[in-house]
Design a protein around this nucleic acid. Structure first.
Length: 559
DNA sequence: AGCCTACGCGCC
DNA sequence: AAAGGGCGCGTAGGCT
């Protein structure tokens, strides 16, 4: 992973509105064009040729739109994603939406309508051709070059240009990885999946019917409750329990686990199995994982904190019960790596809290905390730390939180400052400079009034937003590290060879699918990528960010 | 019928 | 006194 800039040159590229052609123009270090524009009849071929020869940094409006048709490249600058980062840096909280919107802002023109507006997809062909939403007299390549050059200037003008360069490069590399992973897919064994489903739900019912186990459980629940009830309906379940004298605040699992009634255990089992059937059952597989590959659509930059989102298939919530269905191809292994205790390590590195740093260096951070300050009680140490990062203060967290504040003052000060900023309506930033969204109008408030009872809606909203900004600095900085790690790993894997492929990424975890003989090399690349990310994102910190790495046949064997 | 919210649960 | 972050996705149940 390297920050944008450095060696090599850049090439701005746009695709023709129709057909396989496109236009390119070489750019200098500062983004100004060098030489003449080049129209080519086959953009994919031209990109492949230049990538092989010089591996420039490709500059385009949106990786989403252009990259799927192109051969694999090493580096890019995604103007739309970088625009979003820069709008945050500058305290302008518009959404980037399109090249046209960025171009309009640059030229202080009115912005085009939102791409996502209903009907935008059904525009007449004449206008649909311009997916960038530029005015008809504006050349897309020229607009791209202008917006990109301005972005390089805006990065340089920020408070921490090096960090923003790194973030821009990591965000863009992430977009490449997301497109590639969506294309390659996660190995998904229909046979292993079937075996797991059958073990839990019985044989697959014909015609998409409900498995008999669920029907039976529903009947037994009704029997135990003494009345007909739809187990999927909290509105029916709660009164049914109430009639039996069992008071429940909700039908959530943790509430059901607390009560002692036969119907509760049945309902818990029903919920677990029903969830598997509905969310990751046979119908799910036919829709999302046909032909031995699960292909979700990853949305890089889909979450304000920099985490990715996915569309379709719930890729970021593969139930642990079903991880046995993720199986390497014959002759291959899955190298599964996850960064343990990532968020507390991020907190230690950012705050430079000496006690927390020492605990992080000890290996099991929570155990070290317990030894330091919690009389050896690891459970309470974990509660205290999580409460501090999430903004919980009541219940069982109060006392451990007080211990945290006393023992790790610098760490708590960072979190509490972030919370105060949010409560006051301000924005906070991640380690690399990703900015939290501004509170929406409804969340702006006057918290000076009514401070006595402390529970006005405004005050509650303020505190809620404070919890968000408190968590934002940690979650977003963890995403900074994870993205930098992913980008470094992607580059290092390309050096190992063409076969090892990133096939999964989830917040603090990656899976690489590789021929078995290369598994050790891949594992080494993972370790090196984690170390590289630590150095680039956090500099001289002594906090380690270890990746726990396993080469396995099945995802289920990794933990 | 399609759209919306509430609720709940999966993952981190 | 109480106050727990971020998502996607499914059903229920009400609305237009």
């Amino acid at each position: 992973m390297e920050a944008e800039g450095g060696h090599g040159y850049r090439v701005a590229v746009v695709g023709d509105p129709v057909g396989p052609g496109g236009r390119l123009r070489r750019l200098g270090e500062d983004g100004t064009p060098v030489g003449a524009e080049r129209p080519v009849p086959d953009l994919a071929a031209e990109v492949g040729r230049r990538e092989a020869a010089d591996a420039p940094r490709w500059v385009w409006a949106s990786t989403d739109e252009l990259y799927p048709g192109l051969p694999r490249v090493g580096r890019c600058h995604d103007v739309k994603l970088v625009e979003s980062l820069l709008l945050g840096q500058e305290g302008r909280h518009g959404r980037p939406r399109s090249l046209g919107a960025a171009w309009a802002r640059l030229h202080e023109r009115p912005e085009p309508p939102d791409t996502a507006e209903p009907g935008a997809e059904d525009q007449p062909v004449l206008f649909a051709a311009d997916r960038h939403h530029l005015p008809p007299d504006t050349d897309p390549l020229a607009a791209l070059i202008a917006v990109h050059a301005a972005q390089l200037r805006r990065i340089a003008a920020g408070e921490h240009p090096d960090r923003m360069r790194l973030l821009a490069a990591a965000e863009s590399a992430g977009a490449l990885a997301a497109a590639e992973m969506g294309h390659d897919g996660l190995p998904w064994s229909a046979a292993a999946h079937d075996e797991l489903l059958t073990g839990l739900l019985g044989p697959r019912p014909a015609g998409g019917a409900r498995p008999a186990v669920l029907t039976e459980l529903a009947a037994r629940i009704q029997e135990a409750l003494g009345q007909p009830v739809n187990p999927d309906s909290p509105a029916q379940v709660l009164p049914a329990f109430a009639r039996l004298g069992v008071q429940l605040p909700s039908t959530r699992s943790h509430e059901l686990r607390r009560i002692d009634h036969p119907a509760a255990a049945l309902l818990l089992r029903y919920k677990e199995l029903s969830r598997i059937h509905v969310a990751h059952g046979w119908a799910w597989r036919e829709r999302w994982a046909p032909g031995g590959r699960f292909r979700p659509e990853y949305v890089a930059g889909g979450v304000v904190t920099g985490r990715w989102a996915t569309r379709g298939g719930g890729a970021l919530q593969i139930p642990r019960l079903l991880r046995g269905a993720v199986v390497a191809d014959p002759g291959h292994r899955l190298v599964v790596a996850d960064a343990g205790q990532l968020e507390p390590r991020v907190l230690a590195a950012m705050s430079r809290d000496t006690g927390l740093t020492r605990a992080a260096a000890a290996g099991d951070l929570y155990a070290a905390l317990a030894k330091d300050a919690f009389d050896g009680d690891r459970g309470r140490a974990k509660i205290g730390l999580l409460a501090a990062m999430y903004g919980q203060t009541g219940g069982e967290a109060g006392q451990p939180l007080a211990v945290m504040r006393r023992s790790y003052p610098a760490a708590l000060a960072l979190l509490e400052a972030a919370a105060r900023t949010g409560e006051a309506g301000g924005v906070v930033r991640s380690q690399l400079g990703r900015t939290s969204p501004a509170p929406s109008a409804g969340r702006l408030f006057d918290d000076s009034a009514d401070s006595e009872d402390g529970a006005t809606p405004d005050r509650r909203a303020a505190r809620s937003w404070g919890r968000f900004t408190r968590n934002f600095v940690i979650q977003a900085s963890a995403a900074d590290w994870a993205l930098a790690m992913l980008a470094a790993l992607r580059r290092r894997l390309a050096e190992v060879g063409p076969e090892p492929r990133l096939v999964f990424f989830q917040h603090d975890e990656v899976i690489v699918h590789t021929p078995t003989p290369l598994a050790a090399e891949v594992a080494a690349a993972v370790t090196a990528a984690g170390e590289e990310a630590r150095r680039l994102v956090f500099g001289a910190t002594e906090v380690p960010f270890p990746l726990d790495t396993h080469a396995v046949r099945s995802y289920a064997d990794a933990k």
